[in-house]
Design a protein around this nucleic acid. Structure first.
Lengths: 230, 230
DNA sequence: ACTCCTTTTTGCAAGATTTTAAAATTAATG
DNA sequence: CATTAATTTTAAAATCTTGCAAAAAGGAGT
C-alpha cells in the first residue's frame, strides 16, 4: 500500500510534495480541508497522513485527533509554519508521529516521511540508497558518516555545502535550477534570493575543484543551473 | 536464528531500536500491543522478546506471563519508564530475564540484549569487537578494563567521559550529532539539553588533547557534531 | 567588436554555532 | 549527613557560516 494523504491549503507546497512523492512511486491524494480529509479517510486506506496545522475550517490538530480516534496506528505527520514548541508538544500528544516546521527542505521531509512509511510496512523496500557511498573520480561522499573526501583527503564542508554536494552528486548529469535547489535544500517557504546558491556553489568548488576554470565535478548548465558531472 | 520481537507503543523508541538491531543484522519485528505480539509469537520463532511494561491494553507483565507459559526458555527483556523496584521484582518473578529502565542509553540496551541472545544461542557470532582495544596515535582504549591511557599514562575519566570517548573512537571519521550522542549514551527519553554533550566533549579534550586549539583526537564537524580522528 | 545577459569572484555584516569557564545541581561515598 | 566527585546548566566570548551585494569576468548573439 503506497497511498499518502496530504491536507494542505497552500498550492505551492501541494505541488512540490506531489512531485516528490510521485517520483518515489507513491500516490499522493490531496485535500484542502478537514472535512474532505476525513471523508477520504473513511473510504480509502492510507499508509501515511500529512496534515498542515493552519487550515481553513478544521485545523490540523483537530483532524489529527479525529483520525487518531478512528485509527490508532496510521502514521501522521504534522506541518506548521511557526516553530512553536507548544504546537509540537500538543501535536505529539494528540497522536502525531512526527512534526516538521516550515520552511522545510523537501529532502528532509521526504526522509522523515519515508521513515514513517517504513515503520508501517513490513516489506522493507528501502528504495533509497541512503546507505551506500557515492563515488566519482577522486571524490567519495559517505552520507552515513557525513563525510566527503577527495583524493583520500577529508573535505571540511559546512552542512549546507555537504547537502548541496550530496544532492547534486546523487543525480549526476541532472541539471538543477537555482530555484529547485533552494526549494529542495533551503525549503519551500525560504524567503531568500537565488544568489545564495551561486555563492554556495562557488565555495564548494573552491574546496573541491583543482582548477576553477575547468571544473571536473560541479558543472554549470548555462542559463539553467548546475549539475554534477557524469 | 536472528529474529527479535519488540512490543512498544512509543514510535521514537521503536525507530531507534529498529535502527540498531538492523545495523547488527538482526531482524526486528515490532508490535504495538499484546494481542498482536502473542499472535506473532504463535506463528514465528524469536530469539529475544523485548516488552514495554506500559502499553495500551494488555500490559508488558501480562504479556510476559502469557508467553512464559507457552515457552519456558525464550529470553525476555522488559522496558519501563519508572524505575520502580517493585515492577522489577515482579517482572523477574514472572519470568523476565532482564529489566531496563528508561531513559536508557541505546548502547547499554544493545549490550544487554546481546548478552541475552548469546545465552540463547551456542554459536557465538560475536560480531562486535567489544573485546579488543582501540588504539589511535598515543591513545589506547581498553573497553574490557574500562580504562584509557595516553602516552602510556592512565587517563582518569569519569564514566560518561569514557563512554563518550569509546563511542566516538569506535567509529573514526563518523560525525555524530549531539542528538545522536545523547540518544546513544544518555537514552531516548533523556530530558536534558544538548549543551551537556558540549560540556563533556570539552572536559574530555582537556584530559586528552595537548593543544586545545588544534585537537588531534576529538574533532569538531562544524554545524553537525563531533567525530573521532581517522 | 559590441552589447546584453549570466556567472564567478570577492568581501562583509548579521546570525549561528562552538568554546570556554564557572555556577548550580545531582549522585556517590564514607 | 556531610563531603567530594560527577554531571548538567548557564552565560559570555570567540569563531565560523551564511546570505547578500557589488564588481569583475565570461558566454552568446549580432
Amino acid at each position: 500500500m503506497n497511498r499518502v494523504l496530504l491536507v494542505e491549503d497552500d498550492p505551492e507546497i501541494t505541488r512540490l510534495l506531489k512531485l516528490h512523492f510521485e517520483s518515489q512511486s507513491y500516490q499522493l491524494k490531496t485535500c484542502v480541508d478537514g472535512e474532505e480529509a476525513i471523508a477520504a479517510f473513511e473510504i480509502e486506506k492510507f499508509a501515511l497522513l500529512i496534515l498542515d496545522i493552519t487550515l481553513p475550517g478544521l485545523n490540523g490538530m483537530e483532524i489529527c485527533k479525529i483520525i487518531r480516534a478512528k485509527d490508532e496506528h496510521v502514521p501522521i505527520m504534522m506541518l506548521t509554519s511557526h516553530g512553536e514548541e507548544s504546537d509540537k508538544v500538543l501535536s505529539l500528544e494528540l497522536g502525531a508521529d512526527d512534526y516538521v516546521t516550515k520552511p522545510f527542505g523537501i529532502l528532509e521531509l521526504m526522509a522523515r516521511a519515508k521513515a514513517l512509511l517504513r515503520r508501517g510496512s513490513k516489506f522493507e523496500a528501502n528504495k533509497s540508497n541512503d546507505h551506500s557511498d557515492i563515488t566519482f573520480k577522486d571524490l567519495v561522499i559517505d552520507n552515513k558518516k557525513k563525510k566527503a573526501s577527495i583524493r583520500e583527503q577529508r573535505l571540511d564542508l559546512t552542512p549546507k555545502e555537504f547537502d548541496l554536494l550530496l544532492l547534486l552528486a546523487s543525480n549526476p548529469g541532472k541539471t538543477y535550477s537555482r530555484h529547485e535547489l533552494l526549494e529542495m535544500l533551503w525549503g519551500v517557504a525560504f524567503p531568500g534570493y537565488e544568489h545564495t546558491i551561486t555563492s554556495h556553489i562557488n565555495r564548494l568548488r573552491i574546496k573541491i575543484e583543482t582548477n576553477l576554470h575547468d571544473p571536473q565535478y560541479i558543472l554549470t548548465s548555462w542559463g539553467t543551473g548546475y549539475r554534477f558531472s557524469e
